[in-house]
Structures are given as C-alpha cells and as structure tokens.
Nucleic acid binder design. Structure first.
Length: 411
DNA sequence: GTAGGGATAAGGCCCACAAATCTTA
DNA sequence: AATAAGATTTGTGGGCCTTATCCCT
C-alpha cells in the first residue's frame, strides 16, 4: 500500500473509508461520499501514517502521527519511553464535513494545507461525529446508524446480561478503575466520554438506542464503578496482571492469552502509561464470545474488557469484524455506546433470566455473519457455478460423475 | 462429584482456475 | 521509462474432517 489515493491515484491519501476499505484523498473522499445518501453514511477516519493501509485509531501527540492499532502497538509497546506518549483517540465522521468541521474534530490538521483546500459546496456539510457526541444523536445519520447497529448492540446487551448474571461478579471483578485515574482521553476536540455524559445527568438526551438499552437507567460513570458492582477499591486494584490472565485461562502460556486478547490497544492506547500489564483485549467478537461461552469464569474479565472499551475508546464503528483494525469486539463493544443496564440489586440474575440470555445470545451468534467481504465478485460467481466433488473443485475436463446419493468418505 | 460416550458446533483444509500481482526481458 | 510476456500469487464456495464443547447417563 502506498500513500496515494486509491481512487484518483494522484493525491496523497488522507482518510480511510471502512465501508469501501479504501484510502482516499480528501477531494475524492468528498466526491465519493457526497454522491448519495448511502455513501454519506460511510464512516471515515484518518489513514494510518505508518502502514498507510489501515484506519488510524490514535494520534500520537509526541510523534504527531496517526496510527492504526497495530502500528500504535508496535510503536508504543516496544519501548518504555514511547509508552508514555500521549495518544489521542481519533474520531470518525460521516457525511461531507467542511474544512472547518474537519479541523474541529481533528484539530491537529489545522496546519494541513490539504484540509484548508477542502470545501463542500453541495450543501451536504452534515458532518456527524457519531461516536463521541451522543448529544447529536438526533441527527438523522446517527439514527440510521443506530438501526444498523441495533442487532449487534442487542447482542452486546445479551452479553452484558450474561456477564451481569455471573455470580462471582461481585467479588472477583478485576477493575480498571484505578487505572482510570491515569487515563487521559482526548477525543479530538470533543473531550467527551460516555461516562461523563452519563454522569452529567443529561436528562433530555435522546438516546438512539434507548429502546434496547434503557440508557436512561444506566449510570456508567467510572466514578460510580464501585457503587455499580459493590467492589472494594482493594479488590479492584487487581488490575490484569499476568497472573490474572493465567488464572483466567488456566494456562501460563501467555501467547494463548495474548492471542485471545489482541486489540486491547484500543483500550490501552488511550490509557496512558498502563500498558505494562495488559497487552490486549478481546480482538474480535469471536474472541469475546469464546470467552463468554467458556465455563471457566470468563465473564469477569470480559466484563472488564467491555467496560474499558466503552469507557476509553471512542472508536466508531461501522462494524467490521473482518477488519483486523476494527478492534473486534468492535461490533459489539466499540460502537461508542455502552450497552449496560443498571446492575441488579442482587448479585446475580435469576437462573431463568440467565438461561434466557444464553439462549438469545446463542441464537444471535448463530445468525450473525462475520462480515466476509467478497473482494472479487467475478471469482465468487465462478466458484458458485464451478463443478465440485465433495465440496472440492474439479477440473473442467474431468468427468463429472459425482453422485451425492452414493458419496463415500474418502478421507 | 467424576468419568465415559454420544451428539453437536466450530474451524480449517482441500480442490481448480480466472484474475490480480509481480518479475523479467 | 514504457511495454509486453511470463511467472507467481490470490481468492472463491461446498463438503469433509478434526477438534472442542455440550449433555446425558
């Protein structure tokens, strides 16, 4: 991948469109995404300045570069000096923002001449920072997006119910709370987090997901964390140390744990200086799910991961499970909207509720399609009509005498 | 409470070949 | 530097196999 816009092939690529999986210059971005209402919904962010092929998630203030998850990890986890670099979570946008609006969400681009040249005269300067401005949720684009996400969020809600029902939740909850004191979350120019929003008691807030999530009832403030879970500070000081992960996975093989937890970068990336202990979190929905379905008390950790994702990350998401940059759990975790419901007064749900939640969760898990993106339709078309024997392609010239009624296992 | 075995689910592999990409002249 | 030719790699879907998990006895 190069630095060049994949559309015009001339200008330097600036933004990454998740829906199109393309790096575009600002001019092409504007042209393409002002074409129609659907394209306007495409969520875009800056392109990683290291690999130039993935959507940037953070901006390193010290180095003045925008980095994707992988590059951020590689750049900052390797040395202790880099570890302290202040990183700023990058917002996504949709619509066709003007130069001023872009510079509003990405203030560091003010000096970029390519931004200054950007104008949007089609009357569609309807930028929406969908992930970090819940107050803007009345924006039609946000509402539309909320519908697209409802399924995934609903699933996340089920997950939450499962987690919530875990009887051990109250006692062994490893917390991020302490670490949160060290967190400096910079969300572009909109220094806003859900916890703050919740905590501020924004009554008039028209939450797009309220139907499913009863957000009005949710108080997700970090400050109320203890109150939420009835966990003492002492207990919560147990941040994820290696032993915790080992205990969790019943293994000392950190590679296993790490592979299952890839992606915490999204969390730690914004949590300055707390990277030492935890390398990663659920990298994708599947990981999260596997953890959830695990019988060895995974919800404890998962819950913490979710909490951290929601609280720290403002990644938006066009959910793209197949996209390794899209922090995976993204489809359910990093939508920007927390899925919590207020904790039950009792420490655990009734068993029926839990089993119901399990059932719903499994059903949705079955239905869910992991965004397998077909890159070449022509190949797909050909593969679909190609002759097969026991699922395998056969040579065009070969006799096609396969009789499915008399198939025998040849393995 | 534990072990064993059947049922079920999930993930990965395999195949051929056109298209895409890379290398060399 | 541009072009052509050849070589190599990639991607596609359905069925089967292996492994893991679930559930019952």
């Amino acid at each position: 991948m190069g630095y060049i816009c994949e559309y015009c092939g001339e200008q330097r690529s600036i933004v990454y469109c998740r829906s199109d999986s393309a790096c575009l210059c600002l001019s092409c971005d504007r042209n393409i995404h002002s074409a129609n209402a659907l394209s306007q919904r495409h969520s875009r962010t800056l392109v990683c300045e290291r690999c130039n092929s993935q959507p940037a998630i953070f901006r390193c203030v010290e180095e003045r570069v925008s980095l994707c998850q992988n590059c951020d990890w590689m750049a900052h986890a390797s040395s202790s000096t880099c570890l302290t670099h202040k990183r700023q979570a990058l917002s996504c946008y949709t619509g066709c923002p003007s130069a001023v609006e872009l510079s509003t969400i990405w203030s560091f681009l003010l000096g970029d001449p390519s931004i200054r040249d950007l104008t949007c005269e089609q009357g569609m300067g309807s930028m929406s920072i969908t992930d970090c401005q819940p107050g803007d949720s009345q924006h039609p684009q946000v509402k539309e997006k909320s519908q697209d996400m409802s399924s995934a969020l609903d699933e996340a809600n089920d997950l939450h119910n499962l987690v919530k029902s875990a009887p051990f939740m109250g006692s062994s909850m490893p917390s991020l709370d302490n670490e949160l004191h060290n967190v400096e979350l910079l969300v572009g120019s909109t220094n806003l987090t859900w916890s703050k929003v919740r905590n501020s008691g924004t009554k008039g807030y028209d939450d797009p997901f309220s139907d499913d999530f009863n957000m009005d009832e949710v108080d997700l403030s970090i400050e109320n964390y203890e109150e939420l879970f009835g966990v003492s500070i002492d207990n919560r000081d147990r941040l994820f140390k290696n032993e915790d992960i080992d205990d969790f996975f019943g293994t000392k093989d950190m590679s296993t744990a790490e592979s299952s937890f890839q992606g915490v970068n999204a969390v730690e990336g914004s949590a300055v200086g707390k990277v030492n202990t935890v390398k990663s979190a659920c990298s994708n929905a599947a990981s999260a799910e596997s953890m959830m379905s695990c019988k060895t008390e995974p919800p404890t950790l998962c819950f913490a991961m979710q909490q951290s994702s929601f609280s720290f990350s403002n990644l938006t998401g066009e959910s793209n499970a197949g996209d390794n940059q899209d922090c995976g759990a993204s489809s359910m975790l990093s939508m920007g909207e927390p899925s919590w419901r207020p904790p039950c007064p009792e420490s655990s749900m009734p068993s029926t509720s839990r089993s119901d939640a399990v059932l719903r969760y499994k059903e949705k898990k079955k239905k869910r399609q992991f965004d397998k993106r077909v890159r070449y339709v022509s190949r797909k078309t050909r593969a679909e009509v190609r002759k097969r024997v026991k699922g395998r392609f056969v040579k065009d010239g070969d006799a096609y005498d396969y009789d499915p009624l008399h198939q025998t296992r040849s393995y």
